[in-house]
Each structure stands twice: as structure tokens, then as C-alpha cells.
């Protein structure tokens, strides 16, 4: 899915826009109150794990331009 972000494109602003478009996601990717990443999810940018980076760090141009996805990868257990 695509979201539009006003201002700097950061992890926070992307997730804010995502949760605004899909309110049911609030509290699932990030904690309702602290906005911390849930431990069963990780964030990847251009193939690299940025889960531990600052949520206010600017994301690369590939993400901002929509050429590459900002990936939220969750634990699955099916076998």
C-alpha cells in the first residue's frame, strides 16, 4: 500500500500516515502509548534492518520516492 507523507519522510511519519489511513493498525505495529515497535515485528529499508535506528531518522530517497518499499515484517509460525 502507498501513503502520502507531509514533511520529512521518517519511520515515524510513514507509520503515522499508515495508521491514519488504517486506524485498525493502531497498537499493532507500535505500542498504543509509547509508540515503540512491537518485538515481533521488524522494519527493513532497502534490504537492511533499521528496527533499532531512531524513528526520526530520514528514510532513503528510494523509500521517499516510492521506488522501494518500507517493509514491516512480522513473525509467522505456520508450518
Amino acid at each position: 500500500m502507498s501513503v502520502s507523507v507531509d514533511g520529512p519522510v521518517t519511520r515515524s511519519s510513514v507509520l503515522d500516515a499508515l495508521e491514519a489511513a488504517y486506524p485498525m493498525l493502531r497498537g499493532t505495529i507500535r505500542d498504543h502509548d509509547t509508540k515503540e515497535r512491537r518485538p515481533f515485528l521488524r522494519f527493513f529499508v532497502c534490504g537492511e534492518d533499521v528496527s533499532l535506528a531512531s524513528p526520526e531518522d530520514p528514510l532513503p530517497e528510494e523509500i521517499a520516492s516510492g521506488r522501494e518499499p518500507f517493509m514491516v515484517i512480522g513473525a509467522i509460525a505456520g508450518g
Partner: peptide, 15 residues
Amino acid sequence: CLYPAPPPPGLVQSC
């Protein structure tokens, strides 16, 4: 290292 903790039971569906 990848997933330090599991999702709460019931949040993630099984197959």
C-alpha cells in the same frame, strides 16, 4: 535476535 518476543496469543492467526 530477529524476534525477541512472540506476538500475543491470538493476535497472529495460525494456518
